[in-house]
């Protein structure tokens, strides 16, 4: 068990290192000179050379990557050359907003999607199942930014129930009320994904022999579904949720822009448009690490639920 955990964590670190190296190389292959972008076209060659030296751009690429990883390993993401501010500060100011948004979004999607999938599987081919199916596919089909725009129109502009933009004035209640609409928009599609996946894997498990055994022993249907079936059927769902959280951390950008919320997606978007490479690198790196962390956590939870995984080693 512990061996499995250790292996999984080491693998996670390896993935981060490979991802960072790829990312670093790719950004440097993008046409355009970061120094010229930063200083503008009329900067003197001396100044350009000075900045280039300062950013370590004269070293060969592999050396730059190793230096970068070394720096990251000590917890230093570099400096934002525009604002003369540490990238760490910038990223970690924005990060909590995105994490809360993603967790709230996936959280409500789980609360609705998983029971919906269970219902569909238990009453398969009934009206409930068909209705849940239509609802799920609709949720998946609507793009997040459309949901975001219409929920602003309906709940903020017309009904005036909830605030439309920003992240609140700092108070807890205000923060929560500003979180509701964006979380709704982020999570809606995931309700559909989760419901469909849970339904499919429940039905698959229900046709397995051990469920017939449980029935032959007269176990109550409730025990069979929620203890014997769901425990197995939830495994692929846990993996999907782990990936979902990881993906949303960087793709919540639409929602963050529509709701004018601070957040890491928005930060990346702004940094890319202004060619602020240190900030792009820093924030993409942090989301990459978080992606690996959330999928690793999902794997570890799977191992806790499924004894076969942890003995595999």
């Amino acid at each position: 068990m512990w061996l499995y955990f250790l292996k999984r964590i080491l693998l996670g670190i390896l993935i981060v290192v490979v991802a960072v190296s790829l990312l670093y190389s790719m950004i440097h292959m993008v046409p355009g000179d970061p120094v010229k972008t930063i200083l503008g076209p009329r900067a003197s060659p001396e100044l350009q050379a000075q900045i280039r030296e300062k950013m370590g751009l004269n070293d060969p690429l592999p050396v730059q990557i190793v230096k970068f990883i070394g720096r990251v390993a000590t917890g230093d993401l570099g400096e934002d050359v525009f604002k003369r501010k540490s990238v760490n500060t910038i990223v970690f100011e924005q990060l909590p907003h995105t994490i809360y948004l993603v967790l709230a979004g996936i959280g409500w999607a789980m609360l609705v999607g998983i029971p919906l999938g269970c219902l569909s599987a238990i009453y398969r081919n009934s009206m409930i199942d068909r209705f849940a199916g239509i609802l799920s596919v609709s949720c998946i089909a609507i793009p997040t930014f459309v949901v975001a725009l219409y929920s602003v129109l309906l709940f903020a502009v017309t009904l005036k129930w909830l605030p439309a933009i920003g992240a609140g004035d700092g108070g807890f209640g205000s923060y929560i009320s500003h979180l509701i609409l964006p979380a709704f928009a982020v999570g809606l599609g995931w309700v559909g994904y989760l419901a469909r996946l849970v339904r499919a894997s429940m039905l698959e498990v229900m046709s397995e022999n051990h469920v017939r055994t449980a029935r032959a022993f007269g176990l109550p249907e409730k025990t069979i579904v929620f203890k014997y079936v769901l425990r197995l059927a939830i495994l692929p769902t846990i993996t999907l949720i782990g990936m979902g959280i990881g993906i949303l951390l960087s793709s919540a950008v639409f929602t963050e822009i529509v709701f004018a919320r601070p957040g890491i997606g928005r930060l990346i978007y702004d940094a890319v448009t202004s060619r602020n490479y240190p900030v792009v690198m820093g924030s993409v790196l942090v989301t990459t690490i978080l992606f690996v962390v959330s999928t690793t956590i999902a794997d570890l939870i799977n191992a806790l639920v499924d004894p076969r995984v942890r003995t595999e080693g």
Partner: peptide, 11 residues
């Protein structure tokens, strides 16, 4: 049942 490998719940 017939197949002992699949008739018990694996988790």
């Amino acid at each position: 049942f017939q197949d002992p490998m699949t008739t018990l719940n694996p988790v």
